[in-house]
Design a protein around this nucleic acid. Sequence first.
DNA 1: TCGTTTATTATAATTATTATAAATTAATAG
DNA 2: CTATTAATTTATAATAATTATAATAAACGA
Lengths: 149, 149
Amino acid sequence: MAESKHLIAALDKLKKNGVRMTPQRHAILAYLINTMGHPTADEIYQALSDQFPNMSVATVYNNLRMFKEAGLVQELTYGDASSRFDANVEKHYHIICRQCGKIVDFHYPPLYEVEEAASKETGFKVDSHRMEVYGYCKSCQEAQSTAVN
Amino acid sequence: MAESKHLIAALDKLKKNGVRMTPQRHAILAYLINTMGHPTADEIYQALSDQFPNMSVATVYNNLRMFKEAGLVQELTYGDASSRFDANVEKHYHIICRQCGKIVDFHYPPLYEVEEAASKETGFKVDSHRMEVYGYCKSCQEAQSTAVN
DNA sequence: TCGTTTATTATAATTATTATAAATTAATAG
DNA sequence: CTATTAATTTATAATAATTATAATAAACGA
């Protein structure tokens, strides 16, 4: 697979920020950008363990922090133990399955009215918001309806 | 301070669920209901350590889980390390200060249209959503504007 | 290619949370 | 009121995610 536009742009941004490129860093970033999922640090570590048998988990965490600071990835935290990471920084929202934990993107016009209302009510200077929807994905709905009660 | 209506209702609900009342449990619940903040498990533990010098942190965690399962409190997870707990189960949203971490409630009509749109786009069966606004609270704005650059 | 600076590795430390097992205590039937 | 029993608390250990540290290795501009 050729390097996607998205990946090329991200690499470019890092270079402009004076960040050195290493094989590990490149692989972590590429993995995040190419995957449709929203992997945890450990999932990334596992996924790249064939390619980099000696890579340390610390490298994954260090790079994820770096990418986050550079605005290339977003950290998602839910009730469960570990953070998930998303290289899609375009405006979009997530819907999460309560049963299997799957995270799917969906589109909706950004909720700027809410930001404004919140700012007015609280006096905060607002810069962003986060919103997720919870429910049951198609396959978990089916599993539920065919289950014996 | 007399027991608030809110606390009385919560105690009632627990009794109906066949849950035993203990001094620790009562104190944790009362603390959560009376505080305006959104404390972590450890903050609760600290706050009650005078009253219960021998209480175990596990007791705090156990009870918080219990309250959550009973629908009496809500667990809030943000990027930072530990969960926060909110005994206000009325519909409301939070705005969070990026600088000092303060969490303040604000009101806005529940975003059911978003739930519907998400359901339509993804095929999920939706049951709830979560949304928070981020920014800088008044005192942190002032601190910033008076700071020497 | 060299030298400096940054990144990676291996490992240990930290922190939040959960599990376990023994001791205690609340609810309640008698 | 007391004894019973099942739930709760406590103390402690275990787990798991993440971060810190120090030594080694690699990137990249001169």
